[in-house]
């Protein structure tokens, strides 16, 4: 599990904090998302949890390791996929993974298996420098699984990827989570958070504003609406009605009884709408 208490971080150590009094816990096997706009402090918090940034203030325990006590052993349990691809451009895909395999003290996954998993089968002997941005990202993502991590940190795992690759990445994350891997991801994409996360934390200006499951947030903050398109006197009419208000419910019943319905959708609030409602800020 991950336990964070009263975490603060200032890059310049000048009292201006990029992460302020952040506290939360992530249970084993949970998918936890940090949702916030660029510059909100998501990556700073993630980099402290992984050990890329030093712990300045607060208490952080990751996978049973207290970050105040330096131990390289903990990296055997951690996997990290970076937002920006970072692979050796002069080495082939296989050479990249083979090299990293040798740096761990635990059994690692076979390079070929990993490349197949991320759709890079047949590209084993191609230099990473010749890869497209999406292929490099997949190689970086594959590398993060090399040591079968118990704690998997994903920084903007699908940002900048085309939809089909993003879908593949999401499927892999779901599959790994089913196997019991704890996932901590940062994103400013509410669809990713909604689809993958058991719980999300809204973070703005380095502070957590709210933590809950996407379902609870929608129940708590979303409006229960239905969007209907029907034909009246030869014209297509589009209207949005509440499923809670009595007059709207009556109106909806009337439309169904007296008109041809073209389309009808329930319209839940999106996480983005809830985010804006709660924080007063957009996600971009």
């Amino acid at each position: 599990m991950i336990s964070v208490k009263n975490l603060y971080h200032s890059y310049n150590k000048d009292g201006k904090y990029q992460v302020k009094d952040v506290s939360f816990e992530v249970a084993n096997g949970e998918v936890f998302g940090f949702l916030g706009p660029s510059g909100a402090g998501k990556s700073t918090a993630l980099n402290i949890l992984t050990g890329l940034l030093p712990l300045q203030q607060g208490e952080v325990v990751v996978g049973g390791y207290d970050l105040k006590k330096v131990s390289n052993e903990r990296f055997n349990k951690i996997g990290m996929s970076f937002e920006q691809s970072n692979v050796y451009s002069k080495l082939t895909a296989k050479e990249n993974l083979d090299f990293y395999r040798k740096l761990f003290d635990v059994p690692t996954l076979d390079s070929h298996t990993l490349l197949k998993l991320v759709g890079l089968e047949g590209k084993e002997h191609v230099k990473a420098g010749e890869f497209s941005k999406g292929m490099k990202h997949r190689l970086t993502f594959a590398r993060s699984m090399i040591n079968n991590p118990e704690m998997w940190f994903l920084d903007e795992p699908t940002t900048g990827l085309d939809p089909s690759i993003a879908a593949d990445i999401k499927d892999i994350i779901k599959e790994k989570n089913k196997e019991g891997v704890t996932v901590f991801l940062t994103t400013h994409n509410m669809f990713i958070a909604d689809e993958l996360c058991d719980r999300v934390a809204f973070i703005v200006d380095g502070e957590i504003k709210l933590i809950d499951s996407p379902k609870n947030l929608k129940l708590q903050y979303g409006d229960k609406l239905v969007e209907v398109e029907y034909i009246e006197k030869g014209e297509v009419i589009k209207t949005t009605l509440s499923t809670v208000l009595p007059e709207d419910k009556r109106e909806l019943q009337k439309i169904i009884e007296h008109h041809d319905i073209q389309t009808m959708h329930t319209k839940e609030a999106t996480l983005e709408e809830i985010f804006i409602k709660v924080t007063g800020r957009g996600l971009v």
Binding site: T50, G51, L52, N72, N76, M80, N86, F104, R143
Partner: peptide
């Protein structure tokens, strides 16, 4: 940064 997240 990737090397820094290995037990090396």
């Amino acid at each position: 940064s990737a090397i820094n997240l290995t037990p090396a």
